[in-house]
Structure formats: structure tokens, C-alpha cells
Design a protein around this nucleic acid. Structure first.
Lengths: 201, 201
DNA sequence: ATTAAAAACTGATCTAAAGTAGCATTGCTG
DNA sequence: CAGCAATGCTACTTTAGATCAGTTTTTAAT
């Protein structure tokens, strides 16, 4: 899906990783978010009838298409679904906000730590991660575009995290060595993403 | 409204300016968004039952309270309202995303230009701004915390924008001198925020 | 009108991260 | 299995923006 395309569908990702990003005229890229299994994607493009961002698979993916009309129609018969979708959209916004805070007010090291902690929390929620770590198919270039720093600097920061005994990211695997210290470095909110949403209450 | 407070209401702002921000442990602040008349605020806090950010008036304000229960209940009787609220939330997210891109991939000058252009577009939509400019009750300190740069640097950037004949921000007034050049500098999407939402279609 | 305190502004110095350049691995592909 | 592209890694140099230390101007309160 690309910026400017009209009448896109939304999807629920059942397998694989996807990334959402924006491109600037000069070719710079800002990755806004990564989607992992269980995530809803393309909702904004459906509501605005035009995609305001790009979506690209990182790994081979499996996803279910959700037609705009079907989704909106379903709100009439089950208003509870409307609340659930609204909740999912808000959770999404909360993540973008946290990402914004990271880039705006955290140093490269703090923000990298925060990023891996957030991914960890999200992956654990869908059973794809443990306290020890998780599989992560991202390159240092993607990380750079997500964190708003250069790829060269990502490499230096990853080395520092490793040398400090906090976390290792190598060969597609993230290993968390010291969760407590990471939470401290990143100023990570432990309650963040704890809420399972309206359908489970 | 403060981070961690529970069971807050949402509001529709009818007059005045409000700002939403997050605080870090070390006192650093990141302003996520400013709300202007017509904006919906506090929706996330309602859905999550806990505020994940702070909201503070910048000027004296007038707002209508919307109770969480009333809002959710109303979805049953008018599913179209659900779509409208979802659209509003998505528009909000789109703005946060654009803000994220700004901080991640635009220079201080570009990002300041983008900020004032976005405000201009939003204010024009509610009749509080014209092509020439608009009233803006923000201090350089607030601007700094919104743009993710230091207040000292905001001052230098504002001088540069003024000297380049692009825009003046003085004494609570923004005057746009060269809209076209600003759009170019900021890599601003002209179609951004053009959509009036589902209720008007 | 006076004064206190915000807010705006400026120059000098410092630093985190960018940019540049090059080498080392890994994993494809013909 | 040679060769190429992608990715990972490192040292050196540069730069955007931070920080520090003020002065000036504006605004609000008495």
C-alpha cells in the first residue's frame, strides 16, 4: 500500500511482520510502526479513503482482508464492535505517541532500549516472546528509520547496549540480559499496553 | 488531567487552546498536540480508563463534558456516530504521525515551518485563521517542547524564518509571508487534513 | 507608575549524532 | 563455488542543535 492510493482495504495480520512508514520528497523515510501478528492495519486508509502512509511486508505474511463497507456496516448490528475497533485505534495512537516522545525527548540509547522493550511487551502479549527475548526480523537500516537516527549510529548504540549487559540484538534475535536496568534506562512505563481492551472486560 | 488519573471524562473544546503532553521522570516534557476549538480531547483516557498523558489549558477555555458511558451507549442508537468518533480519532492519529515524521526526519527549521502550516490549516478549518495568518497564544518554551528542540534554538529558528521572509511569529500572532515557499521548505502535504469526515458525506 | 517576573533574545562553547569511507560477514544466485 | 549484494561493523571528521550565561523586552500585579 502506498501514499495516495485510494480505496484500500484494512487487514488483520495473522502471520509475519509488516512496517508502516512515510516517505519524504528527498527520499528520507520515517517508519511509524511495525505490525506483528494480531495487529489491525490500514484502518486510517479506509476511513480517509486514501492511504496517507505506506505499508510493506518485512517477512512473508498472511492476513485477512476487512472491507471498509463490511466494517462500517457491522457497527449497526454490533455497537460493541465499534467500541472495540475504536479501542484498537486508540491503542495504536498511544504507541505512536510513545514513539513521538522517544524521538523527541529520549537519547538514541534510551530510545533504542524503549523500542525493544515495547516490542517485547507486544510480542509477549501474542505469545511470540518470553522474558528472555524474541525473534526479530529487522535490519539495522529499518531500526535506523524507525528510531530517527542513522544506521551507523544504530550499530554503535547496539554495541553499547551489548557492552553494558542490557540487551543483544544479533542474527535476528533479541536477547534481554537485564530487564530491570533496561526499564530504568528507557524510562519505560510498566503498565503500558497492559490493557486488553473492552471485549475482555 | 494528569498521567495515571482514572475515570476521566472526554471533552469537546468550544473555546480556547489546550495542550496535551507527556512528562519524563527527569522532568523533560514532550508536547504531543495542541487542541483548538472544535477538537475532541481525552478520548484515549476514557477508553483506557486511565489517562496516559497530561492535558492543560493554555488560555482560559470553555468545553463540553462527554461522559464515557454516554458516549459508548450512544453507539448503539446511532452507529453513524461511532464511525464519526472513529474518524476523529484517526485524524488525531494522522496528526501525531505527521508530528513524529517531523521530529524524526525534518530539521529544526523544516519542522517549525511544518508546525505552523499545520496549525494554519486546522485554524482555517474552524474559521480562526486566514491565508495571512492567525492568533497563536503559545510561548517559545511550549514550541520547544512540542518541536523537540531547545527554547534557545526555537528563538534562532524563528529569527531565520523571519529573515528568510517566510513567516513571523511575534506577540501572539503568526503572519505567513510566503505560503508557497513554506510548503516547499516543510515538505507539507497540501491535501493533509482536507477531509471533513463521514458526517459531511 | 513601579516593580516583579515571565518571555524573548543573543553569543560562546560543547556534544550527541550525522556523515564519510572503508573493511568484514553473510547469504544468495547464476 | 565464485561473485555480488545486502548487511554489519568501525574509525575519523563534521555539524546541528544543546547548554550555559547572560541581557533586553514585554506583561502583569500592586
Amino acid at each position: 500500500m502506498h501514499q495516495g492510493q485510494t480505496d484500500q482495504a484494512a487487514y488483520i495480520l495473522s502471520d509475519g511482520w509488516v512496517c508502516s512508514y512515510k516517505l519524504m520528497r528527498d527520499g528520507k523515510r520515517q517508519i511509524v510502526d511495525f505490525q506483528i501478528p494480531g495487529d489491525f492495519l490500514g484502518l486510517r486508509s479506509v476511513l480517509f479513503h486514501t492511504a496517507d502512509h505506506n505499508i510493506e511486508p518485512i517477512t512473508p505474511v498472511t492476513a485477512s482482508e476487512v472491507l471498509a463497507s463490511d466494517l462500517i456496516d457491522a457497527f449497526s448490528s454490533s455497537p460493541r464492535l465499534a467500541t472495540a475497533v475504536l479501542w484498537a485505534a486508540s491503542r495504536d495512537e498511544a504507541m505512536v505517541v510513545e514513539h513521538l516522545v522517544s524521538i523527541g525527548r529520549r537519547s538514541a540509547l534510551e530510545r533504542t532500549a524503549h523500542f525493544f522493550l515495547e516490542l517485547s511487551a507486544r510480542l509477549k502479549l501474542v505469545g511470540l516472546g518470553t522474558v528472555e527475548g524474541y525473534a526479530c526480523p529487522l535490519s539495522q537500516y529499518m531500526l535506523a528509520d524507525a528510531l530517527g537516527i542513522s544506521a551507523v549510529h544504530v550499530n554503535r548504540v547496539l554495541r553499547e547496549l551489548r557492552e553494558e549487559g542490557l540487551l543483544t540484538f544479533q542474527k535476528g534475535k533479541v536477547t534481554i540480559h537485564d530487564f530491570e536496568k533496561l526499564v530504568d534506562v528507557a524510562d519505560f512505563d510498566r503498565t503500558y499496553l497492559d490493557d486488553y481492551g473492552p471485549l475482555l472486560r
